[in-house]
């Protein structure tokens, strides 16, 4: 971290940061947590410190007073855990690789956009374009996600506890989107091959997106996705949607449209 950052090291009980790896907690010991207060240091200092960590570093970080600041914990590529204690701004955890980012508040536009791997969990609502273009990893949103959730998703898994807004999974190419609430207009417009699971109502389907049969392998993968997201929704209550594949090839009947 050197001169780039001014975080302080504090000994925090693991219980206060919800450590799932319960070994240390069970032993009653503590772990080091690097605390970074965004009212006294900049997001650039925070991100520079996170980017400077050595390969394989799995340290724990707490970000205080985010106040909607943009680009918090963007570009991580170490298996660290970052807890953001409040609402995050645009592009939080963008381009994430390997890291676990917990947002204890809402997230702004483009949370986990272009994520490659790791896990991002929004314990609140997410703004537009959550998980946009992401290739891998798991994005969990406990609340609602607004428009264009999973736009152009390329392999990410997204589980939304509430509703998603209009044009979600627009041009989705790969990955799975699970919506435990309702979906807005034009779900899956121009979809390629992602699988969409919606428990509630779909306001309308986009071009070439259709409801599909839930086969055992779909129930199995949905069960696993819900488990990974820490949810207990009944997989049998969901409908699967995907591509009708009618836009894959040029159809001569459409020639006059060009």
């Amino acid at each position: 971290m050197g001169a780039l950052s001014t975080p302080v090291i504090e000994d925090a009980p693991t219980s206060t940061i919800n450590d799932d790896d319960a070994g240390a907690a069970a032993a009653g010991s503590t772990v080091d947590v690097v605390v970074h207060d965004l009212r006294t240091a900049t997001v650039r200092e925070l991100n520079a410190a996170l980017h400077a960590l050595p390969e394989g570093d799995s340290s724990r970080w707490r970000v205080l007073n985010p106040d909607g600041t943009h680009s918090i914990a963007a570009g991580l590529d170490r298996p660290v855990t970052v807890e953001i204690e409040g609402p995050a701004g645009y592009y939080c955890a963008g381009m994430n690789q390997h890291a676990t980012v917990e947002i204890h508040g809402s997230a702004g536009v483009g949370v986990a956009e272009n994520m490659m791997s790791g896990r991002v969990h929004v314990h609140g609502d997410a703004s537009q374009s959550a998980g946009a273009t992401a290739h891998g990893g798991l994005l969990v949103i406990d609340g609602n996600a607004s428009a264009r959730c999973g736009i152009s998703m390329k392999g990410v898994d997204i589980v939304v506890g509430g509703n998603v807004g209009h044009m979600s999974a627009f041009m989705a190419q790969a990955g799975r989107l699970v919506v435990c609430g309702d979906a807005g207009d034009a779900l899956g417009d121009s979809i390629y091959e992602a699988r969409l699971y919606v428990k509630g109502r779909v306001a309308s389907l986009g071009a070439d997106c259709v409801a599909k049969e839930m086969r055992p392998e779909h129930l199995a993968e949905l069960t696993e996705l819900l488990r990974a997201a820490g949810r207990d929704d009944d997989p049998a209550a969901f409908t699967r949607y995907g591509s009708a594949r009618t836009l894959y090839n040029f159809h001569v009947d459409n020639a006059s449209a060009y």
């Binding site: 909607g68 701004g89 645009y90 809402s106 702004g108 609502d125 703004s127 428009a147 209009h166 807005g184």
Partner: peptide, 22 residues
């Protein structure tokens, strides 16, 4: 336009916050 403009308002932490539908 963005949440961060609201971050200093009194009581924002318990406000009902949403994005307007189209």
């Amino acid at each position: 336009s963005e949440y961060r403009y609201l971050a200093g308002l009194p009581g924002v932490e318990s406000a009902r916050i949403f994005e307007p539908e189209p």
